[in-house]
């Protein structure tokens, strides 16, 4: 077991972890943060996406022990994030979710896209979402929601 310190959703805390434990399992099983979902556990589906030191990361492809000293935001920690607030509303309005399994990863990647592109078009969003798999919606609603959120944020900051 190894001692680590994490800044998790704004709170710093020490933990002991087994080296093989992924960040995803650590978040879900040790911290009870179950917004982070696990689909494939090998980087293909994107359901487990979190923010690590400000950058999107697959939490199934990070070891908790390697995150020592780093800062992590899960969907729970982005509740009051201004971009997330807009995105969440548009996901609701555009029917961008059905079962909800992919939704935490979609929201985190959606926010990442809106931080890197100003008012992205549908084609850019489809390309950038190619690593997030949804088995329900057919993606149309998700893409619409991110386009609309991008427009709203773009208009507000013009």
């Amino acid at each position: 077991m190894t001692e680590i310190t994490l800044h998790l959703n704004g709170t710093q805390a020490a933990h002991t972890v087994e080296p093989r434990q992924t960040l995803a399992d650590f978040l879900r099983d040790r911290c009870g943060l179950t917004a982070t979902h696990l689909g494939c556990e090998h980087g293909a589906c994107g359901a487990c996406t979190v923010v690590l030191d400000g950058q999107a990361a697959r939490s199934c492809l990070q070891l908790a022990v390697m995150c020592d000293g780093r800062s992590i935001q899960t969907l729970e920690g982005l509740r009051a994030d201004p971009v997330m607030e807009v995105l969440r509303r548009h996901f609701h309005e555009s029917h961008a979710l059905q079962c909800g399994f992919c939704t935490p990863g979609m929201l985190i990647m959606g926010r990442d896209i809106l931080q890197r592109y100003r008012e992205p078009d549908a084609q850019t969003i489809r390309h950038e979402l190619s690593g997030q798999i949804c088995r329900c919606t057919g993606y149309a609603g998700i893409v619409d929601a991110i386009v609309a959120a991008g427009r709203e944020i773009g208009t507000a900051t013009r």
Binding site: R58, L61, G131
Partner: peptide
């Protein structure tokens, strides 16, 4: 790959 993978 994908941006979340390219970041690391």
């Amino acid at each position: 790959s994908y941006r979340a993978v390219r970041n690391h």
